[in-house]
Amino acid sequence: MDNIIIIAVAALGGLGLVAAVVLYFIASKFKVIEDPKIDEVEEALPAANCGGCGSPGCRAFAEATVVSAKEKKSLDGLFCPVGGNDVMQIVGSILNLEVTTQAPLIAVIRCNGSHANTPAKVKYEGASSCAFAHALFAGEGGCQYSCLSEGDCVDACDFDAIHMNPETGLPVVNDKCTACGACVEACPRDIIELRKKGPKDRRIFVSCINQEKGGPAKKNCAVACIGCSKCEKECKFDAITITNFLAYIDFEKCTLCRKCVEVCPTNAIHEINFKPRKPRPEKAPGAVPRKPVPKVAQPDKPVTMETETETAVAEKVEKKESPDNGKA
């Protein structure tokens, strides 16, 4: 009996010992020397693996930062859009490097071709995929630059930050947006752009990418940019350029003075999260403030908002104070 126990212990112990020795040699032979900082950096990253930084995942980004820190002594060109400046500061402190802060970005939908603004001329039936619809036809409203409302951007978002508004048929971005750029990639029409989030979330942009001449553009959509260049003349900061009958506001140069918004004849320029401006009854109806007054009735304000309901809905949802609306 004792013998059996001894044999068993010896056999198993011996086996264990042999295995341990083999493992030791294999482990030392195939050891990969890795900078422990990679793990540290990875630890600090948001682990979303979204690819928004350009690297195929957080681990790859961590490796890239460590390599960059070693070779270039800087983290230029490397930025985690999801973690933002906070995370980049931590990464910088791990790697003992100064990190320049970058202005946070947010995805902006540059189309206002809602069902009301761009009335449908044909009815689309088929796979719910913008990419397919884009290959098939110009769009229900006839504008070949317009949003196709099939929600490829919504599917692409890993952060639950973009949703379709069934009333307008346009996507709406909420403040969960990390500017990873997945929706920008997904949109077959390049409607979505990453723009500066702006102070207090205020931003001004042209909500249109139609490059047709004014006439044809306006034929399909009531709120298209017609390239009239009024805003370009109005802008004192050279922030607005017109190419191919389309105005574009450079968000680096824009000072959010809101002058362009007032002059736009088609309401194609949107301002978001600004306080309602003082009423200016003598102005043309096209330039009224776009944001509805939240709840509190202001009887002294002129009621000149009939063209703005669509934008108002979209903006209300985008508004930071009421993120719940975004869950359409």
Partner: peptide
């Protein structure tokens, strides 16, 4: 099922 829609999409990509 819109098979061909998705086939076209996949073919394109």
């Amino acid at each position: 099922i819109p098979l061909l829609d998705f086939l076209r999409l996949g073919k394109g990509k």
